[in-house]
Simulated assay, not measured.
Amino acid sequence: MAKDGAKAIGHHFEGVAERYLNHKGVDVFERNVTSRGGEIDLIGYDGHTLVFFEVRYRGHGSLTDPASSVTPRKQHKLLNAVSFYLHKHRLWETDTRIDVIAISPGTVRKYRVQWIKNAIQAG
């Protein structure tokens, strides 16, 4: 049951991130894309660049900030998922990047949203 609760929280904050990105001019066109490589939370266009978004939320009392919670293992899984997506859709020549949307409780607003562009790069 705890997994269902975590999944619902994840979907909620993906929605928060999507609304934030739409407000910033990003055209989000896919959510929760799952493949053999892993899951991509959001996919959209920022101008002419195809962007894969990892959404992370950490609440009050968390020992890590949301951006730091993207571990090397998670980065590897995300790179695999993005590679699989690009191959499947034949997008080898497309400008792409992987960004992180880090969300935490806010003080002035309900949430503090940090958009970290090009947060994860193929090594």
Rank of each mutant, 00 (worst) to 15 (best):
N80I: 02
E14N: 08
D27M: 15
D99G: 01
V70K: 04
T49K: 08
I98W: 01
H89V: 00
H11P: 04
T49Q: 06
V108F: 14
A6H: 07
H87N: 14
D46H: 10
T64V: 08
R109Y: 11
Y45P: 11
H11G: 07
G37W: 12
V33D: 13
V70W: 04
S62V: 05
R36Y: 13
P105L: 02
K110R: 12
F13D: 04
T64M: 11
E18C: 09
F13K: 00
R90G: 07
G44M: 07
R19Y: 15
N32D: 12
D27R: 15
G47A: 04
L91K: 01
F13W: 03
L86A: 01
K77N: 12
E93Y: 15
Y85P: 02
K24D: 11
K88A: 10
W115P: 03
V28G: 03
E30N: 01
R56K: 04
L78E: 00
P66Y: 00
G25K: 05
K117N: 09
V51C: 01
S83H: 05
D46T: 07
P72A: 03
G123V: 13
F13M: 06
P105I: 04
I98G: 02
K3S: 10
I43R: 09
T94V: 13
Y85R: 00
Y20K: 03
V100G: 02
K88Q: 12
H12P: 10
Y45V: 08
